[in-house]
Design a protein around this nucleic acid. Sequence first.
DNA 1: TTAAAATATGAACGGTTGTTCATATGTTCA
DNA 2: TGAACATATGAACAACCGTTCATATTTTAA
Lengths: 110, 110
Amino acid sequence: MSHDNHKELVTSVKANMPDADTLFELADFFKVFGDSTRIRIMCALFERELSVCCIADIVGMEQSTVSHQLRVLRQENLVKVRREGKQSYYSLEDEHIKLIFEMGLEHILE
Amino acid sequence: MSHDNHKELVTSVKANMPDADTLFELADFFKVFGDSTRIRIMCALFERELSVCCIADIVGMEQSTVSHQLRVLRQENLVKVRREGKQSYYSLEDEHIKLIFEMGLEHILE
DNA sequence: TTAAAATATGAACGGTTGTTCATATGTTCA
DNA sequence: TGAACATATGAACAACCGTTCATATTTTAA
């Protein structure tokens, strides 16, 4: 179950890691990027702010689905809303998103 | 269901988006970051290469669980293995990982 | 105020995913 | 070869998650 300097390694590596709570939050943050519908919504919002029904048409899903996913994005502070008449206009909240996207794309394109 | 320049917007935004396949792959890639066990495994590997049982002790989970998750990380080309005797030593495959981590951390720390 | 349009929300379902247990495979050493 | 250790893998279960349908809320305009 353990070899040579196993125990020292374990404690030293653990000591240098961010605390578990932070890493849990980090996982929750990346979880948002782990769904293709949300990815496509964010991608559409790179161009400009959009109303819910526009987004629904762009990603080809129900208005209800898009609303639910926009709530998830809002809860993680990735998008913000602006009401204008009957429409809600969503836009990206954070500049990190684009960079994270680009890095992901670089990876999957070898 | 649609307002003023709805239709033009939809087609123009769609035209400038990466194709659906790419974005699907991208979501699959980020999905790997969306689990705290995998996050903690990757985080441990930032320090150095580690054997499976070391990783299991560091993250405080069963050896079996860690093995399963390492397979997921391997399938997405995020880690590589090296056999040495009875142990399998895992290490990070890609430099993007650290950058993606840092950007995620920057976001959750406001 | 009523109708219509846009969005938000709750419940339910089906599918996915992470963990565990048990066990198989691989490796070393006596 | 056999025992002991390290790792990998399959099956099964529970929990989570994304979508849809139905409906509620909000806003405008007649």
